[in-house]
């Protein structure tokens, strides 16, 4: 266990905990756009910055999602300086995507309702890349990637429809609604930046008949579960599968 102080609150957390998780542990709210517990630190939004004073080191600003706690650390999670910087960062994001509801809400939470900055080219999303991360780290497919259409800097996320299995994980994690997924007429439609990016056929549950996953997802799971003969032929939706075999199979399907 590691002892540290966050905003004058003492806390004790296991080795390997991030400062962001430690703060949540003691009820201190740190705003973030791109941090998800299931994924490795994304480090993109920089809204979760804190001031950190580690023993023997200079006081510095660091992203709390990517900062591992150390014994004797003192963290200011919401100092005036940090709040001012967070406002500047959200103002920048607001300048790049002024009409996005999620960004506006996040900004309002930080007391920002307008931006003093102007940029020549607006961004279609926050470009944080959690969608790319989820697809790579959790699904093991890597169908999404950054594109730099206007130069070296990433300015869009693109989807390789061939690789995409249509699991929908990207849409679930996207913090700004740039990716959406919709099932209709036995097909799953994935939209990126408001345009259809992929359409994949859905399969139906052999028990209840409801469409529940794409064929590609079922194939992927078959590949991953190849040692588990029980699940090879049956195509059950999660609800029906649970009724029949309550043992959790998601662990066996992990990459």
């Amino acid at each position: 266990m590691v002892k540290l102080v966050i905003d004058a609150k003492k806390c004790e957390v296991p080795v390997g905990t991030t400062a962001l998780a430690a703060a949540r542990e003691v009820g201190i709210v740190i705003p973030t756009l791109c941090s998800l517990r299931a994924l490795r630190p994304n480090k993109a939004c920089r809204l979760c910055i804190v001031e950190v004073q580690a023993p023997g080191l200079e006081k510095m600003v660091a992203a709390s999602c990517d900062l591992l706690v150390a014994e004797g650390m003192e963290i200011s999670a919401n100092s005036a300086k940090i709040q001012k910087m967070r406002r500047a960062i959200i103002q920048l994001l607001l300048a790049a995507m002024p009409d996005n509801i999620a960004v506006k809400e996040l900004a309002a939470g930080l007391g920002v309702f307008a931006t003093p900055f102007a940029v020549a080219k607006r961004d279609a999303c926050a470009l944080c890349g959690v969608c790319i991360q989820a697809c790579q780290e959790k699904i093991g497919v890597s169908a999404l990637s950054y594109a730099a259409q206007g130069g070296k800097a990433a300015d869009a996320v693109i989807l390789d429809a061939e690789r995409c299995v249509g699991c929908g994980a990207c849409a679930n994690v996207c913090p700004v609604g740039a990716l959406t997924v919709q099932d209709k007429n036995d097909k799953r439609e994935l939209s990126l930046y408001g345009e259809t990016a992929n359409v994949i056929d859905l399969v139906k549950c052999q028990v209840c008949g409801a469409p529940f996953a794409t064929e590609k997802v079922v194939d992927l799971l078959r590949q991953r579960l190849k040692k588990d003969a029980l699940t090879l032929d049956a195509v059950y939706c999660p609800a029906c599968a649970r009724e029949r075999n309550p043992a959790p199979c998601f662990e066996r399907a992990a990459i």
């Binding site: 480090k43 993109a44 939004c45 920089r46 500047a88 960062i89 920048l92 994001l93 300048a95 790049a96 900055f117 102007a118 940029v119 020549a120 080219k121 961004d123 926050a126 470009l127 944080c128 890349g129 950054y146 730099a148 130069g151 070296k152 800097a153 990433a154 300015d155």
Partner: peptide, 19 residues
């Protein structure tokens, strides 16, 4: 021109400054 575009302050902020 060399910002990778991943983190917000650098991607947007360096555009604002250059402009």
């Amino acid at each position: 021109d060399n910002s990778c575009g991943h983190c917000i302050p650098c991607r947007v902020g360096t555009q604002v400054i250059a402009d």
